[in-house]
Design a protein around this nucleic acid. Structure first.
Length: 668
RNA sequence: GCCUGGGUAGCUCAGCUGGUAGAGCAGCGCAUUCGUAAUGCGCAGGUCAGGGGUUCGAGUCCCCUCCCAGGCUCCA
C-alpha cells in the first residue's frame, strides 16, 4: 500500500482487553486508550481481521516456539501483529510463505475460538512467559484499580481479563470479539514484515511486525489487492520517472529532488498560479533568505522546540547560522521593522519560501516527504476583531484554490489546546472558537482532535481525498499564540494604544512538492491541460504534411498552447502510441484532407475514437478555453453519444471560478 | 537511526547448486513516408553499487561501506 501522507487510523483494540464484547452493547464505557474498536458483530470485517491476526500469531508460535506476543490490532484494510522471536531471530520475506502455509492449515482445521475470563492473578500465571502480555495485564490492573469504584459490571473485579483459546496450546490475551471458528477465515494475504518498537518507542525493544490484510470474501480480497496495484501504478515517483519530471540524485543527498525541464515547468505553473491567486486576494509578496543566524531561531523558539527537525549549524565569521525550517521568523521581522498602525491590518505576507528540515533517512518518501521544500506560505497579522473574518475567508480561499485543481472532497481536523501550552487559556479559546466558526461556515466536515494542537497554537488541517479515496493532508492553518509575544509585536490602535496582533500561519498547498505529488497520484499523471508540459502533439501523416503541421503549431502557439510536432519518420501508430503513453491531452493528426480544408484529426485524451475533420480554429479555441478553465479533456460532457463531429468551445469558465469539476477517476 | 528487502546496460528484468554477462524497451545509424496504441535491419552500451576476503576461478559465497524501497517514528 502506498501510504504517502496517508495516516491510517490505528486502533489499538488489543491493549485494553478488559472491555469485553458483551453483546448487549454495554461497551459504552469511558474511553481511556484512544479510539475504540467499533462495535463488532461476528460478520464484521474487523472481527475477521483481528481473528486472522490471532491465527497468524498462532502460526508464528508454532513455527518459532517461545516467541513472545506483543499486540495485534486491526488497522485500515488489515491487521498486524508484533512479535519478539526467540534468540533475537527476525522474519524474512521467505518466512511469510511458511507462516501463510501454517495459517491455512489452522484454518482448515476449523478450530473454535473459545473465550475465557480470568482474574488478574490467573492471567498473570497463564501469561507468565509472555513479558509483553504481562505488561498489558499490569496496566489493566492499574486501570482497574483506578476506575474500580465506579465500574458498572458487577463481576468486573472477579473476571477482569479475557483471553481467547483455540487449538490445544494457543491462548492469547484479548478483548475480542472473534469469529467462532478459524474455518470462517481464509481470505487473507500476508503483506510485509517490518521492524516496530514496543509501544512505538525506539528506546524500547524492537519487535518484528507482520502486516496482513483480510476480507470477508475472495472477491473483496482481490479487489483490495487490485487497489494496491492501482496505488502502485499511480505512485508519483514512478510517474515522475516515466514522465521525466524529477529525480533524487544520490550525489545531492536524500530528500533533495531536482526538477527536470518538464517537472520544473509544471512546478512553475503551480507556483505562478498560487502567486497570482494570492496577489489577487490581498496578499503582499515578500522574499526572505534561506538562512539566518541561530540567534533568530533562539528568539523564535525553534531551537528550543524544533531543533530536531533543523539542519545542523554552519559557522561563519564566528556566528552560527542555520537553514530556516520555517519562514515565520523572517516574516515577523518584516512586520516588526517599523511601527504598525491598525490601518495596515490585516497584513497578509506571502512567500513561496523554501525551507529545509532534517528528516531521518527512513521517513523520506519521494516528493511527499523531502528535506528541502517550498511552502506557499503566508502569515497574517490582524487584530482581535478581524480574526474570525480572516479565518473564514482564509478557509474559503484555500478551498477555492484546491477546487480549481479538480479536487472535490475535503475534510478537516481541528486540534485544540494540549496539556502543555503557552499563553493564556482565554486567548486559546478565542483562537480555537474562531477556527471552529470558520470551519462551520465552510461547510466541510471536520472532527475535533482534543489536545492535539501544537504547544503554541490551535491548528486546523485540511485533508483531501484523491481519485482512489486516499486522504492527504495539505493545508494547515494555525493561530499562533506565542510568536507575537516572543517578538513583542504590536500595532497602534484607533485608541492610540499599543495592541498585540494575532498571527495566523498558513500553508495552502502544504508544500509545492507534496502538492505536486498529490496531483500526480490523483490524476495518475494525466494532469489537467493547463498543467501538461505538452498540450498538443501534432503528427503529420507524411513529410508532405509537415508544412501544414508547422502552421497548426503556429496557430496553437498564438493561442499560448504548448505544442510538439512529431515528424513523419516513424509510423503514425508508433507516434500516436508514444504520445498516448505520455498522456498528452490532444494528439492531432494532419494529412491530405486536413491540409486542403484546414482541419485536424483530434485524439482527445481519454476518448476512444479520433474525431476527423475538426476545424483548426475551433480546435485551438476549444483547447485554449480548456486551459483557461483549468479543466481536463476528460471533463468534457459528451455532446453527442456517437461522436458529434464538431463541438467547439464547450466550456468557458473563468480562471479561479472553482466551478470546474473533475470526475477525477476518469483516467483509465 | 532501527528492522526487512533490494542495487546486473538509461529503464524493466534474466543469469540454476561458483566456470568469466544476456533480453526487451529506450539511444544512435541506415532504410521505410505510413490516417490513429509498437516498421525493418544494424550498431553501440556493463570496473554486475564500492571496498575487502574465501577460491585455481566470484555477478553468484563471507565481511564492511554507500545508496534505494517498505515499515517503526514524525509531519508538510
Amino acid at each position: 500500500m502506498a501510504r504517502l501522507g496517508v495516516r491510517g487510523d490505528r486502533r489499538t483494540a488489543e491493549v485494553d482487553p478488559i472491555r469485553h464484547d458483551d453483546s448487549d452493547g454495554s461497551d459504552q464505557t469511558v474511553q481511556v486508550t484512544g479510539p475504540r474498536a467499533r462495535r463488532s458483530t461476528p460478520e464484521d470485517i474487523d472481527t475477521i481481521r483481528h481473528s486472522t491476526a490471532h491465527v497468524m500469531a498462532q502460526a508464528v508460535v508454532d513455527l518459532w516456539p517461545g516467541a513472545h506476543l506483543a499486540i495485534g490490532p486491526v488497522v485500515e484494510d488489515g491487521f498486524y501483529y508484533d512479535f519478539e522471536l526467540p534468540g533475537g531471530a527476525r522474519f524474512t520475506d521467505d518466512d511469510l510463505g511458511r507462516i501463510d502455509e501454517r495459517m491455512r492449515e489452522i484454518i482448515a482445521e476449523g478450530q473454535p475460538f473459545v473465550r475465557e475470563e480470568h482474574t488478574v492473578d490467573e492471567a498473570m500465571s497463564i501469561f507468565a512467559d509472555q513479558p509483553f502480555k504481562l505488561e498489558i495485564i499490569d496496566a489493566l490492573a492499574g486501570e482497574q484499580a483506578a476506575t474500580g469504584p465506579q465500574r458498572s459490571s458487577p463481576s468486573a473485579s472477579s473476571i477482569p481479563v479475557s483471553a481467547y483459546r483455540n487449538g490445544d496450546n494457543f491462548v492469547d490475551l484479548c478483548r475480542g470479539p472473534h469469529v467462532e471458528s478459524t474455518s470462517q477465515l481464509g481470505h487473507f494475504r500476508l503483506l510485509r514484515v517490518a521492524g516496530a518498537y514496543w509501544r512505538g518507542d525506539e528506546h524500547l525493544p524492537q519487535l518484528q511486525r507482520i502486516y496482513g490484510t483480510a476480507w470477508e470474501s475472495e472477491e473483496a480480497l482481490k479487489d483490495y489487492l487490485g487497489r494496491l496495484e492501482e496505488a502502485e501504478r499511480r505512485d508519483h515517483r514512478r510517474i515522475g520517472a516515466d514522465m521525466d519530471l524529477f529525480h533524487f540524485p544520490p550525489e545531492i543527498g536524500g530528500g533533495l529532488p531536482v526538477f527536470h525541464p518538464k517537472g520544473a515547468l509544471i512546478r512553475t505553473l503551480l507556483e505562478d498560479f498560487s502567486r497570482s491567486e494570492h496577489l489577487g486576494s490581498g496578499y503582499q509578496p515578500v522574499w526572505t533568505p534561506h538562512t539566518a543566524k541561530a540567534t533568530l531561531f533562539e528568539k523564535s523558539g525553534h531551537l528550543q522546540w524544533y531543533a530536531d527537525n533543523m539542519y545542523p549549524p554552519m559557522e561563519m565569521e564566528g556566528a552560527e547560522y542555520r537553514l530556516k525550517p520555517m519562514n515565520c521568523p523572517m516574516h515577523i521581522l518584516i512586520y516588526a521593522n517599523r511601527q504598525r498602525s491598525y490601518r495596515e491590518l490585516p497584513m497578509r505576507l506571502f512567500e513561496l519560501g523554501t525551507v529545509y528540515r532534517f528528516e531521518r533517512s527512513g521517513v523520506l518518501h519521494g516528493l511527499a516527504r523531502v528535506r528541502g521544500l517550498t511552502q506557499d506560505d503566508a502569515h497574517i497579522f490582524c487584530s482581535a476583531d478581524q480574526l474570525v473574518g480572516e479565518l473564514e475567508s482564509l478557509v474559503a480561499f484555500v478551498l477555492r484554490v484546491l477546487r480549481t485543481f479538480g479536487l472535490t472532497e475535503f475534510d478537516a481536523e481541528l486540534s485544540t489546546r494540549p496539556e502543555k501550552f503557552v499563553g493564556e487559556v482565554e486567548d486559546w479559546d478565542i483562537a480555537t472558537d474562531a477556527l471552529r466558526s470558520a470551519l462551520d461556515v465552510s461547510g466541510i466536515p471536520y472532527k475535533v482532535a482534543e489536545g492535539e494542537g501544537a504547544f503554541y497554537a490551535p491548528k486546523l488541517d485540511i485533508h483531501l481525498r484523491d481519485a482512489i479515496g486516499r486522504r492527504w493532508q495539505v493545508s494547515t492553518l494555525q493561530v499562533d499564540l506565542q510568536l507575537p509575544q516572543r517578538f513583542d509585536l504590536s500595532y497602534v490602535g484607533a485608541d492610540n494604544e499599543r495592541h498585540r496582533p494575532y498571527m495566523i500561519h498558513r500553508a495552502l498547498f502544504g508544500s509545492v512538492e507534496r502538492f505536486f505529488a498529490v496531483l500526480l497520484e490523483h490524476y495518475a499523471g494525466a494532469l489537467p491541460t493547463w498543467l501538461m508540459p505538452t498540450q498538443v502533439a501534432i503528427l503529420p501523416v507524411r513529410d508532405a504534411h509537415e508544412v501544414y503541421g508547422a502552421e497548426v503549431a503556429e496557430e496553437c502557439g498564438y493561442a499560448g498552447l504548448r505544442v510538439e510536432v512529431d515528424s513523419a519518420d516513424e509510423p503514425l501508430g508508433t507516434r500516436i502510441r508514444r504520445h498516448k503513453l505520455a498522456k498528452v491531452p490532444y494528439i492531432v493528426v494532419v494529412g491530405d484532407e486536413d491540409m486542403t480544408s484546414r482541419t485536424v484529426g483530434v485524439n482527445r485524451r481519454g476518448g476512444s475514437k479520433p474525431e476527423r475533420a475538426v476545424d483548426l480554429g475551433a480546435f485551438v479555441a476549444m483547447v485554449a478555453g480548456e486551459v483557461l478553465g483549468r479543466s481536463s479533456p476528460e471533463d468534457v460532457v459528451v455532446l453527442s453519444p456517437d461522436h458529434g463531429p464538431r463541438e467547439a468551445g464547450q466550456r468557458g469558465a473563468g480562471p479561479g471560478q472553482g466551478g470546474v469539476t473533475s470526475s477525477g477517476g476518469a483516467t483509465r
